[in-house]
Design a protein around this nucleic acid. Structure first.
Lengths: 143, 143
DNA sequence: CTCTAATTGAAAATCTTTTTCAATAAGGAC
DNA sequence: GTCCTTATTGAAAAAGATTTTCAATTAGAG
């Protein structure tokens, strides 16, 4: 994903902190908290403040480059997102998360709920939890 | 709902703070934050500490009497829940929330995602946002 | 009514997130 | 490449939310 172009097109600079946060997220299969991001970058000798991590995540979320993904205890974390409105499934063991699309199923559900409730539905939040193939295998092997 | 029975059956006492929090929630159509609950009860001359509100909400959530419902900005709030695993639709204007059931639609979606992702799905979180009938009407009238 | 253990409240501790503001650095103009 | 403007950063402080601790209180069994 060309995050550089998206930043500049929206009038933002590609600063070191932004570059470092994005490059870290590119290597992570799990959603990371601001603190985790900060610590991971410190260990890589990237000298950036926790405040910048917060600011960077806020900006990237606003630009749609980053998604908020909740862990099984409903703590929010951050992941790079691909394009469009996608949802995530999160492993309850290792917290690995991947995206899935659900538009058709959701459309159907939304239609039914609109009829049932008389609400007009404009947005939704959906996330699944379960076991990734690896952790599922380990669980079977361990029993 | 017989919250008294549920508390005692699980070995908990029906203390004043618990009673007051539950009775307040029974009157609310919107999810309330711990602070909002605390303030509302103070104004009713119920002398209870904010800490007790937190502890009560934690317990009631654990017992399934209370659900966590997120507002449009994804801030968590608390509402009394009916029985079973239900979902909520929240009005983006007035934050009024009501429950809806979605098991059939969800089952179908879960099945498809399991095939697509090879994850085993065990739990899910779904919430809809939109306009309640009242706010929808107001919006139409205002345009 | 008494007694005991669960529960509470207040203060302190812990965390998380936001704000402030002077110092720094990105990137366009030359 | 250098200069200049202004976005961006970092550190400290402030603000907020949540948890822990522990003595005092109270629910409810006997």
């Amino acid at each position: 994903m060309d995050y550089k172009a998206i930043l500049t097109q929206n009038g933002y600079r590609l600063s070191q902190p932004r570059k470092q946060v994005i490059e870290l997220l590119q290597t992570s299969e799990v959603a990371l908290s601001p603190q985790q991001i900060h610590q991971a970058l410190q260990q890589k000798n990237c000298e950036l403040g926790l405040v910048s991590v917060y600011r960077t995540l806020e900006l990237l979320t606003e630009l749609g480059l980053v998604s908020v993904v909740y862990d099984p205890q409903r703590n929010p974390g951050y992941m790079l997102s691909t394009v469009g409105h996608l949802h995530h499934i999160v492993c309850q063991e290792c917290h690995k998360a991947i995206e899935f699309s659900a538009s058709n199923d959701i459309d159907q559900l939304v239609q039914r709920v609109e009829q049932e409730t008389s609400f007009q539905v404009l947005d939704h939040f959906l996330q699944l939890f379960g076991l990734c193939p690896d952790c599922h295998q380990k669980q079977i092997a361990g029993e």
